[in-house]
Amino acid sequence: MMVRHGKTVLFFIGLTLWAAQPVLAAEGKTLQIDGSTTVGPLGDAFAEVFKELHPDVSITVKKTGSGDGAAALIDGRCDIAMMSRFMKDKEFQQAVEKGVFPVAHVIAMDGVCVVVHPSNPVTELRTEQIRDIYMGKITNWKELGGPDMPIVPVSRDTSSGTYESFHSMVMHNEKMAANVEYVNSNPQAHARVRSTPGAIGYVGIGFLDRYVKALKVDGVMPTRSTIAKGIYPVSRPLFLFTNGYPKLGSIIHAFCTFYLTEKGQEIIEAKGFVPVTEY
């Protein structure tokens, strides 16, 4: 019996050792796109259409974050960097030193709407108050002029782009409190807020309807127009960065102007962003 078990154990140890080897992947010739996880879904959807239009070019879209996207463009590891913020001074400096001249293309506007249950009398919050709610400093609606009711903060899962937008624009990258609940889609966030009187949540503009109430943030109501104009505080432009203005007629140029086409705008709306043409 012991001998048989000994063999099994040895076998498992062997498997474990073999399993720990790193995986190597080969890379082909591609149009490389890298960067923000927020812009990522747009990059993916654009690339999907481009793969049909240009079957000879293989496009890879990596989502490693805005900072990594900028670094990749500076190092020449990608052709287009997706970024949910503008390039920082330092990144610009590094780029110019390496002979790369970053040019920004705004392809869409990103806005996150803060919503509560329709029965909630609160109509307006300041960004700091929303941050305090999600950090667990404000826990009852009566502190905000509402009824005596515990606040149930609902967040998107931490891997989502909407979370990323909210986390950087409202939370200023502060960590959320332990009692924050997580759901993994806009419809689920909507459903939780709709059925919970004490809830507060955030969704893309496409998910506003009469079952949830959007709050004014710093006195501005979220609408397509206020988001496109950037008046609404929880809104920001989404960028593609290229090295110089792309050569006219090149695939990079086509990609960076794709947001102007009807199909491009459709995709932008489907992904819950606001086209810049909504102005």
Partner: peptide, 19 residues
């Protein structure tokens, strides 16, 4: 659980959150 049990727990037992 989300559509029936959660609202029921909130309404009838008075839990702040049903999930």
């Amino acid at each position: 659980a989300v559509m029936v049990v959660a609202p029921w727990l909130q309404k009838n037992i008075g839990f702040p959150t049903g999930t």
